[in-house]
Design a protein around this nucleic acid. Structure first.
Length: 301
DNA sequence: AACGCGGGGGT
DNA sequence: ACCCCAGCGTT
């Protein structure tokens, strides 16, 4: 119906205008041709579960040191892990190094452009594949991350929050996407930005929202109707993940292999939940390929 | 479908 | 203290 099409048009005009006015300047943003696809890929790996502010300095170091995939592939994977710093989930660094190797060897050192090929790269899933094709190459595809899912839940479905990921999320975004590829690219980025800085999970700033007048959730009076969330993640304090993190912090700072006893001691620093935790953490890091054991000592791969 | 995986920032 | 985060591969 014409009314619905007009509403979508007004929404995309308002959101893209807001983005042009308010968006943060980020080095991985820019029109296709202005930004290296490799830079987009690096940023997307780093941004998987890690906020923009923390990614920024590591990103700048990475792209200066490794300006294309083959440069990273030529270095040891452990150097990628070391340069990852405290971004968290260091296996992402391993995956990015592996993806760089795949791009260098199988794709002529060019980041693939189509979703299917991108999905074949290590560490590239449905979100990252679409983000790269849309932001690096300007292809008109819906890009839906956790921010966009929340924006759509509120704006379109009148819900306080997004539920578990659904395949319908992409369809919802496709419905809203402007026709012109360049408008669509900006709209994808703008929806994510809006969710990150205005339509936030905890305390949305609806007074600053360019879409407030079309928001179904707001129109309904902000009902407390959030769908059931997945069970909350176990506490970080005392977790195996925290203990693994202590070991990795030691190894990132070490230029020589570290004795097993030193790794175990670092793991236990600040307390452990049970006696077996340090050994369990160390063994799991080796199993994940984040550490290598040589003659009883440990080092980055 | 559920789980494990870092670490820091916001409330 | 608890929730949240530009997700992914494995089971």
């Amino acid at each position: 119906m014409a009314g619905e099409a007009e509403r979508r048009h007004e929404i995309h005009r308002a959101l893209n205008a807001w983005f042009a006015r308010q968006a943060r300047e980020l080095p991985w943003r820019g029109a296709p041709g202005e930004v290296e696809p490799w830079f987009v890929l690096v940023s997307e790996f780093m941004l998987q579960q890690t906020q923009v502010e923390r990614v920024l300095p590591r990103f700048l170091e990475w792209v200066e040191r490794w300006p294309h995939p083959s440069a990273l592939a030529a270095d040891a994977p452990g150097e990628a892990v070391r340069a990852w710093g405290r971004l968290g989930y260091p296996r992402r660094a391993l995956w990015l190094h592996r993806a760089a190797t795949e791009i260098a060897q199988d794709h002529g050192d060019i980041v693939p452009r189509d979703i299917e090929t991108l999905l074949g790269l290590t560490g590239v899933g449905p979100y990252t594949a679409r983000a790269v094709t849309a932001f690096a190459y300007g292809e008109r595809h819906p890009v839906v991350d956790t921010n966009t899912r929340r924006v759509i839940a509120r704006l379109v479905h009148g819900l306080a929050a997004a539920g578990p990921p659904r395949t319908g999320d992409l369809d919802d975004m496709a419905e809203l996407l402007p026709e012109r590829p360049e408008d669509a690219r900006v709209f994808n980025a703008a929806a994510m930005e809006l969710g990150a800085v205005v339509c936030t999970a905890r305390a949305p700033r609806c007074g600053a929202c360019p879409l407030a007048q079309w928001c179904e959730w707001r129109g309904a009076g902000y009902p407390d109707n959030a769908p059931a969330r997945r069970p909350t993640q176990a506490a970080f304090a005392g977790s195996d993940r925290q203990v693994r993190g202590r070991i990795m912090a030691l190894l990132r700072g070490a230029t020589e292999p570290v004795p097993r006893s030193a790794a175990i001691a670092a793991a236990a620093e600040g307390g452990v939940r049970d006696e077996a935790q340090p050994v369990r953490a160390l063994d799991s890091l080796v199993a994940d390929g984040l550490l290598i054991e040589v003659d009883g000592d440990y080092r980055l791969p």
